[in-house]
Design a protein around this nucleic acid. Sequence first.
DNA 1: TTGAAAGCGCTACCAT
DNA 2: ATGGTAGCGCTTTCAA
Lengths: 346, 346
Amino acid sequence: MANINEVAEAAGVSISTVSYALSGKRPVAPDTRRRIEEAVRELGYSPNAGARMLAGSRTQIFALTEPLRKDTHAPTHMSFVLATAVAARRNDYDILLLTDEQAQAGMSRVAANGLVDAILVLDVAPDDARVALARQIATPTVFIGIPDDNEGLVCVDLDFEAAAARAVDLLADAGHRSIGLVGQTDTAYVKSNFPPRVRASVLARAAERGLEVAYGTTGKKHADRAAARRTAGQLLDGGATALVLHCADEAHAAVLAELDARGLRVPEDVSVISVGASFDLSALSVPVDSIPLVPEESCDLAVDLALEMLGPSRPEPGLRLIPPTYESRGTIAAPPGSRPSGAAAD
Amino acid sequence: MANINEVAEAAGVSISTVSYALSGKRPVAPDTRRRIEEAVRELGYSPNAGARMLAGSRTQIFALTEPLRKDTHAPTHMSFVLATAVAARRNDYDILLLTDEQAQAGMSRVAANGLVDAILVLDVAPDDARVALARQIATPTVFIGIPDDNEGLVCVDLDFEAAAARAVDLLADAGHRSIGLVGQTDTAYVKSNFPPRVRASVLARAAERGLEVAYGTTGKKHADRAAARRTAGQLLDGGATALVLHCADEAHAAVLAELDARGLRVPEDVSVISVGASFDLSALSVPVDSIPLVPEESCDLAVDLALEMLGPSRPEPGLRLIPPTYESRGTIAAPPGSRPSGAAAD
DNA sequence: TTGAAAGCGCTACCAT
DNA sequence: ATGGTAGCGCTTTCAA
């Protein structure tokens, strides 16, 4: 590994000129620059990371804290990690992984030893212990997800409340009077931050719109198809003419299988809309309408905020809620037996 | 963030003594040490990471390169990442994530700028492009998985060949004359390194033992239960009295469901053994016998090797195959209609 | 048992 | 447009 001195010598310039030629922070004569670039190539020079961290003010590393609990939904999580890494790299940043017990201990550690410029928090729990840590440390921290106590924090997330409300509105507008919510796993409502938000918003908006609403979870495991089918069945038995799906990939498939088994067509007999899904819905047996959770949106924004927090104009603390987008695929229609759409009044 | 000078001053010693007190690389008088430790605590001192990287010879960071392809099985992958991070941290190392296109580009980059002490390679493909990179760079690299061309590389993995052969032996010894292999997804046999190894070994050992053997994949997606059931059905229709399962969680469940649907009991009517599973098999409707893949074993060993490669006694290149372990749960028995066990000869 | 000081390889300020 | 150089905060000789 060649160092800056060798490059300078090879190019016949001083090391400061090499540094400036590479950073572009000072104009360099075209010819000089050419010679430097050639020397860099010849020698395979790359500025030493440790030296840059020490001399410069940036480490070019973000920490990503993620407990990786057993109940973490792996595919969704992977999407977020990937999206974060890509967004970070686009801004010349690397990602340092803080998992397991290091999700917490590591935050203090890397904040104290200056290994990272900022910390991104994934897999946020309603009562997340990392909230307290974030307040203690000086390192800029961005939450991807909203903990209950978020006072003074910078948080990014899909506006799940708006997404859920929108789904209810779409169904209500189509004429449905009774809907069901097929929710996440039982533990998700304790360990994760957004399932309760969706549930609360669906229930609240349904009440506002005067709809009957019921909900059920999808069992203990993400892959518990039987529980998903059972829940969907119960909601339908209870009179629901439309289902809001806020659950895993497998559960979506299971619900559609249950509808199929009952000879119910979508959307003629039952309307279906998915909220907050981050997987490919078009691969389902029936591509359903969706208000998706797009990991790239959250993660891009989180990285942008982290970057801003390093600059002079520190952004305000507070929630950054990403407006939901509705993807129509024709799985919402008027409930069976209703008058043609357009006349909703009595 | 206090620095070593402030600690030294507060403790009334020189900075070298502080350094030695913390590193333990030189004896320090008990009383001196006490004063230093107190100063460290008071000031919340933590040695600057960049300065250590520059002055010392170690960065205390490993890179973990993982493409995170769309077809990567997320849960299994997550287990490996977690196991790697834990093993690394146990040795005072952090993990830097290199995903997506950075899985390759990042290797050269961090090797060139000295950001990491070693590189761990995950999600190894048979014809992995990272093999060539590993040979080019000076940074020690450990593969967790075995690429086809592994000459001169340090690779760690479960001995899948032995595991598969063992499974066949167990079934042959129990008296089975015709077995079936329920394999991974179609793409896994192209993109991943171990599925072909298992398949080849099962077929080879079956031939050696004079068994009839057939195999089928589990479709395009990991969660394709229908494909898994179909494959299991075909194998049984073909006369198999025992099944070797080398597939995803969902596929295991699907196969058991197919057996159940056919009214076949395990192990009275069909024997079942799982090979290379890294999830919790005891959670299945029928806890099946297993020769598991244990991420912790591979990752611990990989980290140990990486550490060794940093020392003076560089380990030999070559494969480190972890001997498989058989977990019996009573799902292997003699095939139906066979004479009582013990008498196999004719 | 301890201290002084020479780097590690950069960045960025001060000169010219 | 370029060069000289003072740090950044630590590790590790060399001395005492």
